[in-house]
Amino acid sequence: MGNRHTSLKDLARELNVSISTVSRALRNHPDISPEMREKVKQLANLRKYSPNPLAMGLLKQETRMIGVIVPDLVTHFYASIISGIESLAKEKGYFILIASSNESAEKEKESIENLRKARVEGLLICLSQETTDTGHFENLLEQGIPLVFFDRVCLQGQIPTVTADNAEAAGKITRHFYEQGYRRIAFISGPEQLNISRERLAGYKAGLEACNLPVDPDLIERCNLSHDSARQAMSRLLKLPNPPDAVFGINDTVAFAVMKEIKEHGLRIPRDMGLVGFTDEFHATVVEPQLTSITHPTFEMGRKAAELFFDKIEKNAPPETIILQTKLVVRESSAKHSD
């Protein structure tokens, strides 16, 4: 046989019996004589036969595979969520297939089609930043395909979702800036259609109100979550007649780009400009100064998303929305009082 995986067909050919006879013999089916069962098992051991889970799943119309789509496979944020999903999937005897949308709505649709062709039993998805139309998700719903959203979500109430408490977290950031003595607090948001942009903007505004600070539209910028776009947004803020003295980036990628732009303008962080990120990537602790950021319970987010998936396929549970709490980790980039 060489190194090739031994199949039921191989065993059947060698014994000169049908594949179904071999399959039933291995399952101790009463229609197969004890002698034949023993003969099949001995040959299976000799040839080191092991069942192919995908082939077995296709026979039962189940593959025990779950598709997972994330915007990128580079950041620790998504890697940790995937680990959380995989941990529960493994306990349930499932495998996961991972695809990246690369922040493209078209690639997201393509990934869904590819994972469907691979016969996944359902999908766990974090939306791409370009996604505005939900038709491809509604098609999955109509076909009865189990679907769960995490972090960036849509169709809440129709599809199970797991998110962080984005508004509460953004409010924490704004109040922290105020307590450190900052008064012109800017926010660089992401694409308007994303729930994380809307929710963090609402929390930012609520935080300003709680601190009796006005909402200045000039201090609210948007970017497409890329490094260059974030730097351009920060450059626009720095050119204002009355520029900010603190900036909150919608995620750490944005915050790192902002940090570079601030430094290139000869400003010091945190003395001249406070800076806070969101998602607490590994690099937050190795940049200079270390970045204050919001930490997500990412592994828990993945576990919860997987729990919602299994609740759906095992109990046909109604759509549930889970909101997880975050933590503000204060480091050097916003600690003005300790500078």
Rank of each mutant, 00 (worst) to 15 (best):
F149V: 08
F150M: 14
F150N: 00
D151A: 15
D151V: 15
D151L: 14
D151Y: 14
R152L: 05
R152P: 07
V153G: 03
V153A: 03
C154N: 06
C154V: 07
C154M: 06
Q156R: 15
G157E: 09
G157T: 13
Q158H: 13
Q158R: 15
I159Q: 06
I159L: 09
I159N: 05
T161K: 08
T163H: 05
A164R: 05
D165H: 15
D165C: 11
D165E: 12
D165A: 15
A167V: 07
A167C: 12
A167E: 15
A167R: 13
E168S: 14
E168M: 14
E168T: 15
A169F: 04
G171W: 00
K172S: 12
K172F: 11
K172H: 11
K172C: 02
K172I: 02
I173P: 00
I173L: 07
T174S: 02
T174I: 07
T174L: 05
R175T: 06
H176F: 09
H176N: 08
H176T: 00
Y178T: 11
Y178P: 00
E179D: 07
Q180G: 07
G181P: 00
G181C: 06
G181M: 09
G181Q: 06
G181F: 01
G181S: 07
G181H: 04
R183A: 09
R183M: 10
R184T: 01
R184W: 01
I185V: 09
A186T: 10
F187A: 05
F187S: 10
I188H: 07
S189H: 08
S189T: 13
E192M: 08
E192T: 10
E192Q: 11
Q193E: 11
Q193S: 12
Q193P: 01
L194I: 08
L194E: 01
L194K: 02
L194F: 03
L194P: 00
I196K: 10
S197T: 10
R198L: 10
R198T: 11
R198Q: 15
E199K: 14
E199Q: 15
R200V: 02
R200M: 01
R200G: 00
L201V: 02
L201P: 00
L201K: 12
L201H: 06
L201Q: 08
A202H: 13
A202Q: 14
G203A: 06
G203W: 06
Y204N: 02
K205Y: 05
K205Q: 15
K205P: 04
A206C: 05
L208S: 04
E209M: 11
E209D: 09
E209W: 10
A210L: 09
A210W: 09
C211Y: 06
L213N: 02
P214R: 13
P214H: 13
P214F: 11
P214G: 12
V215I: 13
P217D: 12
P217W: 05
D218N: 13
D218K: 07
D218W: 02
L219F: 10
L219M: 06
L219R: 02
I220R: 04
I220H: 05
E221Q: 15
E221Y: 14
E221A: 15
C223V: 09
C223F: 03
S226R: 07
H227A: 13
D228S: 12
S229K: 09
A230F: 01
A230G: 08
A230D: 06
R231P: 01
R231Y: 02
Q232T: 12
Q232Y: 08
Q232K: 14
Q232R: 13
Q232H: 10
A233M: 03
A233K: 03
M234C: 11
S235E: 14
R236Q: 11
R236L: 07
R236W: 09
R236C: 08
